[in-house]
Nucleic acid binder design. Structure first.
Lengths: 195, 195
DNA sequence: ACTTGATCTGAACGCTTGTTCAGTTACAAC
DNA sequence: GTTGTAACTGAACAAGCGTTCAGATCAAGT
């Protein structure tokens, strides 16, 4: 019936996000209850509502923060270096960024159905911005005669699907290092688009 | 409090599976209740338990039937025709089979987390059998000097991720026909493995 | 020591869940 | 028409859900 000793909102808010992320990634949004998230944080369920308006907002915020981080972190391509270099950079960035955030990536791809329609639209538009960056690289490469793809948009979707697929199997403790994986996927992607 | 007029178990069982499949694909296993499935079928919730032992079995059966159909439908490669032909055939088969069953595919990929551990193991082993078929094609192609891939298993995962990604955007009413999509992906896959 | 605001607790609310099963009606065979 | 089985209904059970909010305790400032 009282405040928990030692509690600070500056601590609690990130711990709620971290707990929600871990449980949503592991079990799925609909399968996880607010009570489970609260238990993971070490508070009662009512306390969560000081930090999120509702469960849907908790999911939406996790997805938006991840996608905004992704877009912010994606470097502007070095136009002087050429399209093949830009593509290589994109592949390395994608694999490395995603491998470092398996939970966020998983939620961002798997929980789209659990978003309300307006939240879904907002998230879809962020995802589209990221896809457009690769499309721009492919367009530039074709304009320079360095790349040859039958359909730029389809190639974009194919490459992103292939790269994102790394997260379904890659483990730090696995047979291949992240650098090796980046090199293999870099090579495959180059071949896929070569002129 | 009585039997529904005109009811036949031979009708009801497939209608339960179809309703479960549609709702699980659209909303996710955990977000769909047995009462919703029953309502879609036109029965009361108690009736479902004449056909499934529980909700988890309903999901598991849908996934297993799909994967067994996939494995049964996959043709044995024509060894005389050569590895490139076998690869082309695999790509066309994968895209065509998956495009025809968007709900089953979606459930098979998205609902793994909702399987109990023993069910998960059973499903994973079926998926592995399918992946092995592509690995065998890649191995044969390398043995013949027709293919060159840095890591056969990684190439298998990359190709399947790319091909399965088609289902996230392809629509019969879209800009490209299924045949065009098959051709584009066939070309990309060939390039990806070419010697 | 007192006051004010922060941060939670605890329980309530209205609703829903998966599963079970006694009983009822429909169907089929004779 | 009777009998036996099929196939459901309807309600109960035990448990849980998301969200709200009055009130209690902790923390910080004076």
């Amino acid at each position: 019936m009282a405040r928990t000793a030692g509690s600070h909102s500056a601590d609690t808010a990130p711990r709620i996000r971290a707990a929600a992320q871990r449980l949503f990634a592991q079990h799925g949004y609909a399968a996880v209850s607010m009570r489970q998230i609260a238990a993971e944080v070490g508070v009662q369920v009512g306390a969560l509502y000081n930090y999120t308006s509702d469960k849907q907002s908790l999911l939406f915020d996790l997805m938006v923060v991840h996608l905004e981080d992704l877009l912010d972190a994606l470097p502007e391509p070095d136009t002087a270096a050429g399209p093949m270099q830009a593509l290589d950079e994109f592949v390395r960035f994608h694999i490395r960024f995603h491998a470092a955030r398996p939970e966020e990536v998983f939620i961002a791809y798997m929980e789209l159905r659990n978003l309300s329609p307006e939240n879904f639209a907002a998230v879809e538009s962020l995802r589209r911005l990221y896809e457009d960056r690769l499309t721009a690289i492919l367009d530039a490469g074709q304009a320079r005669g360095v790349f040859r793809v039958a359909d730029t948009r389809v190639a974009t979707m194919a490459i992103i699907a292939m790269l994102t697929g790394v997260n379904t199997w890659f483990r730090e403790t696995g047979r291949l290092s992240l650098s090796e994986v980046e090199a293999i996927y870099g090579d495959m992607t180059r071949r896929l688009v070569a002129g």
